[in-house]
Amino acid sequence: SSPNSSGSDLKSLAKRVNNAYLKNLNMTKKKARNILTGKTNSSPPFVIHDMDSLWQAENGLVWNQVINGAPPNKEIGVHVFYRCQCTTVETVRELTEFSKSIPGFVDLFLNDQVTLLKYGVHEAIFAMLPSLMNKDGLLVANGRGFVTREFLRSLRKPFSEIMEPKFEFAVKFNALELDDSDLALFVAAIILCGDRPGLMNVHQVEEIQDNILQALNQHLQLNHPDASFIFPKLLQKLADLRQLVTENAQLVQKIKKTESETSLHPLLQEIYRDMY
């Protein structure tokens, strides 16, 4: 394994990763929390809680660009599924740019960069999603809208099952009270994971991740001096996230099989193919 880096090296790594996160990830936790708690000058998010409010949101109140050129023309569950896909695809783009800024990532084989993103992006997305969530709903459309958890639960099966596990995870994850600087390192550690299937140079990936984890550990001690065991607690969340992704992949497979009306974005098709 790699030799221990010095405290100042780890500090500068933390800073670089944090800057990359703020530069590439559009919706930060800070921004989201300000909106959710009303600490912002802009108007509060438009609440989407039923068919009617969703329809209003689609007519320019929340989203300025409609999918497939029209407001909900399909069944509502299918429509929400498409909205989830759009957001996911956009976040995959952002995460790709973020990953490229993590020291060492672009020096990896291109093959391994592809593998790390294929397996890492959904875990990263589900780790960032709690920033936009509270127990009652989640921010959408760059904070212009707020979709209630109850509305998502009211969709017919299987669409009602998409977001509920993410809310359950989010409520527990948010109790750790991480900020964007913690999340930046945590998400980087998720991406640079040495046990993804098919990696060519496992050691090279592990070395980068080891540094990131050391930086995260040090950063948490400084940033959360009173939170005991926050680092090991966070490491445990890695296993929960993997479970969440596995279940999500199974649900997407189920939707693909049973809902002939739905289609999957080509980027997501790539990611899910032969995943687990």
Binding site: E94, E97, K100, L110, N111, V114, T115, P266, E270, I271
Partner: peptide
Amino acid sequence: SHTLQEKHKILHKLLQNGNT
């Protein structure tokens, strides 16, 4: 290796060309 990149054309493109 080559086939992995072939199977992940969009990811590959995002990695190489950046956010366009």
